[in-house]
Each structure stands twice: as C-alpha cells, then as structure tokens.
Nucleic acid binder design. Structure first.
Lengths: 205, 205
DNA sequence: ATAAAAACTTAGATGCGTCTAATAATATAT
DNA sequence: ATATATTATTAGACGCATCTAAGTTTTTAT
C-alpha cells in the first residue's frame, strides 16, 4: 500500500489485514524498530527506503510466481493471486531464481504490474488509464489498476487481456463511457472500467 | 515416522522436530483429541487410520512437489526436499491438481518413494535392498531408503539414479560390499550403501 | 470555535506454543 | 532385585500476537 500511496493509516492497514487497530499499532512499532517503517504517534505511516526494498523483494516473489502460474502452469490470470500470496512466503532464493530463468526474466506480471528487480527496486513507469485516450486512437491494453477476480472475470467475458488492441470509436461525454472496436466486434465500456485499464497507443498503427 | 514404524516415541519426535519433550507431549494430546493419533500416557504413539490419511495427504503434496521440481523445473533430486517441505504447506487443491496433471499422475517421487493417492492412501510395495540380490543378477535401481542430500550427492558422483541398471559381478562375503558393472565401468559399493538402495531384477535380461 | 466523530494509543487480558524444573513411570544394568 | 538411567508427564513461566476497554489526539461538521 505504501508503495503507491506514500502515506497509509493504521485504520486502512487494520482493514486490509483483518486485524484490529491496536494490533497494527504494535506491528508498526516493531517495524519501526527495524527501520522498515517511519512511525510517529498519531502520524500517517510510510515505508523507509529499506522497507521499500524489503517490500519490493516480496512483491517480486509474488509477481514472479503469478507469472509462473500463468505461463508455465497455465492457470487463468484470475486464479493466480491467492496461490501466489502463499508461495511468496517460500524461503528459497534458488526456487525463485529458477522461475525467473524459466520465464526469461519477465518485467511484468500477468496483470501488467512491474516485477521488482533482484534488489527489490520497482521500476514505476507512468501509466495512462484508457479513459485518457481519445476517439480515433488505437490502443493496446498494458495493465490493470485492480486485479480482483470479479474484475478479471469480467474482462475474460469481454475477451480483454494484456496486449488486446482496441480502437476508440466514440467517447461519450456525459458518462465517460467508451465505444470501442475489438477485432470485428464492437464493445461498450463504462467509465469506471476505463479508469482501471491502462493503455498505450498501439505501435503498429 | 509412524507410517513405516508403527510405534514412535515422544523422544524421537522431539529430536526430529527440534523441540523439547513436553512440547511434543502436549501436541500429541491435541492430536489425540482430534483422533489423529492414538495416545496413552507413557505408551508409544501411533497414527490412527484417520491420522494416516491426513499424513498421506501431506506426503502426497510433498512428493508431488518434489516430482514437479525435478521434472518441470529441472532441479536435481538432492535439491528438492527442502523446497518441497515448504511448498507442501500450501493450501490450494487446484495447485496440486495441476501439478499432478502436468506430471501425468506419477506414482513415485524422484527418490522412488510412492506418492499417496488423492484420498491419502499409500500403496506400500515390498521393496528389496540391493544387498539381497546375488552375483550374476542384473538389477534396476527403483528407490532409496534415505534421501539425505549427502547420500544423493554421493550417488550423483557415482552416476547412480532411479532406473540405473547394474550387473552384480561379485558379492564380498566378508564385509557385504558389492562389485558391480555400471555401463562400461566397474563400481564398488559398500554394504551400508547397498542396504539403502532398493532394486528389482532388470526386466530386459 | 466548539462539539461530535473518527482515528489512534495504551494498558491489561487471553490464548497459544514453547520452555524449564520438578515429579513419575518405565527400561536398563549390575 | 534393586539401583540407576532414561523417558515421559505435569505444573508453571515466558514470549508473542492478538484482543477489548478505556483514554487521547486528530479530524470533521455545524
């Protein structure tokens, strides 16, 4: 959370972790003692550089695993999060190194999120939501803002995945929805969906 | 332990688990409450049928994983135990099902030990140590009594693996060592090693 | 600007797994 | 057969993560 939000509240963390606030407070005090987190009473929390590296290494394991599950084991992109959440805790550098090799050192996970490098650094590229593009443009989907499986299943039904090319036919001013051409078919996406799809101008146009 | 020894002592368990005896005692009391283990004060312990099934399911995950690490990820058979010991705790039926499918439903792990079925039942085939065979016989290695990595590395150096065919040239009566032909080379194995290699008469002879 | 609400911290309780020390039962050796 | 050693159990302590309840600070709303 602290990686793309900078500041995080105890409350948010408690929610996300399914714990009560006092538990999170004492966790933060311990992480602060290890200099992984900057913590001052009643102030919002953020990771230190050290903490970001550490978090990056865990995210790396998570995303490499997701990639492995999709590419090698042929799971759907909506199935991999929960499994990867468990496998990311495996302590075996050689295991993740092998994954990385088998996958040809991928830079993105199956949802288009960047895989941190071996030092835990995350290359944060600027990403543009689909709704920022204009009618007449032809774009490729390169990432997702959320990876909850209901969203992923929705995209499956619409046949949208990473690398999908879409032509923007119309942008509805009123509600921000978009009419798109997807191969031979036409497709309507609502504003909230367009906000959660990252895209780039398709190169071959 | 209880699967091929029937009776196990608190002390042995404590050693193996790196815990003190009182800890193991209280564990056994809890397992007994779940009817996984038969426990009476001061008596040796053994798994119940229910406990054997449960253990079988964990062993299944462990051995499937070992097979996956060797066959799919190309780890050496001496590298896989420690990684599998961690992955066996992953809770995801679909993950292990996929492994099983990718491997073509294997019945043995990379060390020749049987993989329990989906219900946790272990097919315990009778296995014959190499030292029980006689000179003149031609045998295949089908399993190992121990899978510690120093032993496995020793076998690597000798170029012995599952499926290796050996011709018994001589059995030394005095110390029980064996002179064998391995391909074009000759090989001498000491008694303790011969006791830990399982073999069968080679079929194509 | 003040009152009310929300967020946060502290103190202390509970549960759990582990341990040590003391005691009891069983196994071994003379 | 008895003494000794080994093995096992019990009781109680400790550390740790969590919680609830109570109090404090900060934010929000009027």
């Amino acid at each position: 959370m602290s990686i793309d939000k900078e500041n995080v509240s105890i409350n948010e963390l408690a929610q996300k972790l399914g714990l009560k606030m006092p538990t999170v407070t004492s966790m933060m005090q311990k992480l602060a003692a290890d200099r992984l987190v900057k913590y001052e009473k009643y102030k919002p929390i953020h990771l230190t550089e050290k903490g970001k590296k550490e978090a990056g290494l865990i995210i790396r394991k998570h995303r490499l695993t997701e990639m492995f599950l999709v590419e090698v084991m042929k799971f759907g992109w909506e199935e991999v999060h929960d499994i990867a959440e468990q496998i990311e805790h495996i302590n075996s550098p050689v295991f993740f190194k092998k994954m990385d090799e088998m996958l040809g050192f991928p830079e993105h996970d199956p949802h288009g999120s960047p895989i941190p490098d071996r030092a835990g650094n995350i290359k944060q590229a600027v990403r543009h939501p689909l709704c920022d593009f204009n009618s007449g443009e032809s774009v490729v989907i390169t990432g997702l803002a959320r990876s909850e499986d209901d969203f992923l299943k929705f995209l499956n039904r619409k046949n949208i995945g990473l690398g999908t090319v879409l032509n923007i036919l119309e942008k509805e001013e009123y509600d921000g929805s978009m009419k798109l051409k997807h191969g031979k078919k036409e497709l309507l996406l609502s504003r909230p969906v367009c906000e959660e799809l990252f895209a780039e101008i398709a190169s071959g146009t």
